Amino acid sequence: MALAYHKEIDPYTSFAIWKIEESADELLAQLQLKEHERTYLDSLVNGKRNMHWLSTRVLLRRMMDTDEYIDCRVDSSGKPYLSNFPHYISLSHSYEYAAVMVSKNKAVGIDIELIKDKIERIASKFMSAEELEFIEEKQRIEHLYVCWCAKEAVYKLHGKKNVSFVENIELKPFHYEGKGSFPAKLDVGSTHKEFTVHYEKFDEYMIGFVSDDTNEE
């Protein structure tokens, strides 16, 4: 597993991208798994799902820099959390890359996606009509992927299933520049929060990441 990219957001928050190059057995050898984790792993079909699960856990162990067992679980909404460490985490993967974001003091969200033309076909399913108006034709596909990654990152930070990308997550207009940030708003139920979402193009992938700065401890 080769570290492809590491970014420190602040003294307490960072994310890393890894290129998945090992076999499943090589990844498994780097983990300390309990019976419930092995049972879940055995339930996955060998292939991408298996490799992505293993690679995000290996990367998480590297980022935590500990020899202790890391109890990474998911809650009833599917959000990953650590039961024996106070850190906030977010996991993502796409094809040959795994991404992990970790913070000691605030909720985080990250998403990585391989850029493909197919996003054009589903744009209206995650973008409002007003948001579609600011998409630039010259780099339309990349611009749409930033929006998808941004909304996915906010969704992961929130960690609840009752969120519509179209109705509950609003992106403010921004120009696509390959790397940058812009405001976003989450409005669902009793939650009304504003965020600054960051994005970067990495190789042929797009990365979107966000942290809840109002939640700093």
Rank of each mutant, 00 (worst) to 15 (best):
E21K: 00
E216Y: 05
K161H: 11
S181T: 03
I70C: 12
I112T: 08
E170Q: 08
F174S: 05
K34S: 14
N162L: 14
I207Q: 02
E26A: 15
T196N: 03
C149D: 06
F209C: 01
S181E: 07
E131Y: 11
R73H: 10
M127Q: 06
T196D: 00
S55G: 06
E194L: 10
G109T: 01
E8R: 07
E21V: 14
S77T: 04
P86L: 05
L54C: 07
K19C: 10
G178V: 04
K118E: 12
E137I: 13
E120W: 00
S83A: 15
Q30E: 10
M101D: 00
K118V: 15
Y40R: 14
F182P: 06
I122L: 13
A123E: 12
H87E: 14
S211C: 13
D117N: 04
S92W: 10
E217Y: 04
W148I: 04
D187A: 14
V210G: 01
K138H: 03
H192G: 02
W53H: 10
L31T: 04
W148G: 11
L132K: 09
K185M: 12
D203M: 10
D213R: 03
Y40D: 07
H175A: 15
G178S: 06
Y81M: 12
K116H: 13
K34W: 07
N168D: 14
V74Q: 08
W18I: 02
P11K: 02
F209H: 07
S128K: 09
K201V: 15
C72T: 02
Y12C: 15
H143S: 08
D67I: 11
E152S: 01
L114M: 14
L3M: 15
L44Y: 00
K193F: 08
V188F: 04
D212V: 04
Y97V: 00
I9K: 10
L114H: 10
E133F: 02
R73V: 15
A153W: 02
L3C: 12
Y199S: 11
H52E: 09
E152H: 04
R49I: 09
S94H: 04
S181L: 08
E133V: 09
E152G: 00
K160V: 07
K34M: 14
T39E: 03
H158F: 14
L28S: 11
A29M: 08
A98T: 03
S103C: 11
S94A: 14
T66A: 11
T13G: 01
W18Y: 15
E130Q: 09
E177W: 07
D10I: 07
L157W: 02
R121S: 09
K48A: 15
I110H: 00
E130G: 01
K116A: 15
